[in-house]
Write a protein that binds this DNA or RNA. Structure first.
Lengths: 110, 110
DNA sequence: TTTGATATATCACTTATGGATATATTAAGA
DNA sequence: TCTTAATATATCCATAAGTGATATATCAAA
């Protein structure tokens, strides 16, 4: 089922989903959470959501809570998932910092 | 030539390439720049590079310098490209901030 | 003159994303 | 009670994005 070496760098929807699952949430709640947190800017549809959930479960970054009934399956980030998220936050912060630096340096003689 | 509604949110390689082109650079130099800036962490191969260059030119976010000879075609971000990059930095900063907030809030009683 | 670095470009394959759709449950009204 | 909207999970399938491999060609140095 694919999965491979990807997830080394997280894409935007994967990043958002992992953020959402720092606290336990079921699928639909993830969609709503992301939409709210981004002021409706970023929407994750069901296809993207369940595709990514499957992949994250396969990679051991999230897991379904055992008691959760199938009508409302609750997921949460595993310890590995939290670690991964922390790394990804750092990685992305570097990107943002580089962007800001380059923009602010622009124009000024090198 | 494709292009569509994409480029609304920039993916990682597109973001890096646009950052590189805040100063004029030719293709190969972009590859090297990104590799250096990321300490070899993030590499952009030629296929990705030229695919994205084409797309960015089509979208008016970068342009080839008119004098540049075809053996060493130099590109640079347009005004629209700089604006886009600024927006993207803000968008990504929000994502990072959300990630940090969520991680640091975790565990503490809601 | 051969080799490695520079440089651009495309092919063809894989991966990622997401609209549309299907199905089922639940809660609130009329 | 019927019906409708919101909740909820899931997949199909088409499009978009990313990329290793490969093909060329030039240039500088040994």
């Amino acid at each position: 089922m694919a999965k491979g070496k990807s997830l080394e760098e997280l894409t935007d929807p994967v990043f958002y989903i992992l953020i959402a699952l720092v606290e336990p949430r079921h699928g639909y709640a993830i969609m709503q959470y992301v939409e709210e947190e981004t002021q409706g800017t970023f929407k994750i549809g069901p296809a993207t959501l369940y595709t990514i959930i499957k992949k994250l479960v396969g990679a051991g970054l999230i897991e379904a809570e055992p008691e959760s009934d199938p009508r409302r399956k609750t997921y949460a980030a595993t310890a590995a998932g939290i670690t991964k998220l922390e790394e990804e936050v750092v990685r992305r912060k570097r990107m943002v910092d580089l962007g800001m630096l380059v923009l602010q340096t622009k124009g000024r003689g090198k």
